[in-house]
Design a protein around this nucleic acid. Structure first.
Lengths: 197, 197
DNA sequence: CCTACAAAGTTGTCAATGACAACACGGCTC
DNA sequence: GAGCCGTGTTGTCATTGACAACTTTGTAGG
């Protein structure tokens, strides 16, 4: 397993993803070239094709990583069942916006149209997974009387629309940076009040 | 002005934008090539450069058209000051989602990160312009006692976050098509209730 | 009128790229 | 130790964006 000769890289796929993530952050998706990636990693220009059939496939994989990292961020931000409903939503909202601001290009990739249906299904699943802590918070909110009755999934989606809206617009630059905290606050007010019983 | 010889096209810029819009809709932004565009219009491969210095510049111009068309759609959807607040918001929300579903690729272009600051400023302005009818509806809502007091711009933004969230997620395919009407309805409930006094 | 100029098109060229095919290496299994 | 298959490699091609140099044509000024 170890001591790969210089011929075999060892874990080129991971290295490609990592380097691609760097380039994405620094220069954007449009500037991402498979050949440049290969050069940066000191492998031949065709090596990446063994791991990603396509440029598109690489971008999809990158987006997939994005969903996983965002899921982790959400889980980490979760204040648990003892927090008030507002506290929970505030935590998720903040985590979402922070992620979007830290990785705006990745955000764009994650929420861009996909044509490869396989990749799409995977991502859709990852996206649903990412919502798990939110579901819990909403169920808890219902129990505490802070959230109206009804299908948890639909309620979660409604809340997510708003949060995603702030995050996406912020990451794209449509909200001036110094107004983002206020925007998030306003969005939070809207959601908390709008979901009341 | 008329009767341009075959040498001069007449209005190549407009023709390019139109054809590019078609290609965008059919094959996506990634498949948009300046040279192919030129071939389609029967001009030489360098002709487009007289009107768009860059591939990026063409995409930006396309996005700009998108904002204008969306602004027109909003203005057209505006039910006027006699409608209830909910009716107004429903109309704007529906128009937004319909636009997003009819032109998903354009939507992606409009809300993608821009580096050219000139183009960005223009688009930001177009985007603000597009909100004019919404401002009016909110002011009217405040007058009628359906919307809480406060800065109209902030309130409009908050509402827009939710609407944009639905539209964007729908256009990207994250909301199953048959659930979109329901999602929009839920979003509308959230906004109307969340903005109450 | 006609002349000079600028806008808009053209041809030519270059380096970079994604895609693919054919080949080489080397770790693993039997 | 034989062979196979995953992983890299070299070679090649058509396409593309960008740029430079040249041409055509409408038009504005003398």
């Amino acid at each position: 397993m170890r001591g790969h000769s210089s011929y075999h890289h060892g874990d080129l796929r991971a290295a490609l993803l990592e380097q691609a993530g760097r380039t994405l952050r620094e220069k954007g998706a449009a500037a991402l070239s498979l050949r440049e990636l290969a050069r940066d990693l000191g492998v031949s220009h065709a090596a990446p094709s063994r791991h990603f059939k396509d440029r598109r496939a690489l971008l999809d994989a990158l987006a997939m990583v994005g969903f996983e990292r965002m899921g982790a961020a959400m889980a980490k931000a979760d204040p648990g069942p003892d927090a008030s409903f507002r506290e929970s939503m505030a935590a998720f909202g903040l985590a979402s916006v922070q992620f979007a601001m830290a990785e705006p290009e990745l955000m764009g990739l994650m929420y861009s149209r996909k044509y490869d249906t396989d990749a799409f299904d995977e991502m859709h699943e990852a996206w649903m997974r990412l919502a798990a802590p939110v579901y819990a918070a909403i169920a808890e909110g219902q129990r505490a009387g802070d959230v109206h009755e009804g299908d948890i999934e639909r309620i979660a989606f409604a809340a997510f629309f708003t949060v995603h809206g702030v995050s996406n617009l912020a990451s794209v630059g449509m909200i001036p940076e110094d107004e983002i905290p206020q925007a998030l606050e306003d969005a939070l007010d809207l959601v908390v009040k709008g979901l009341k019983p």
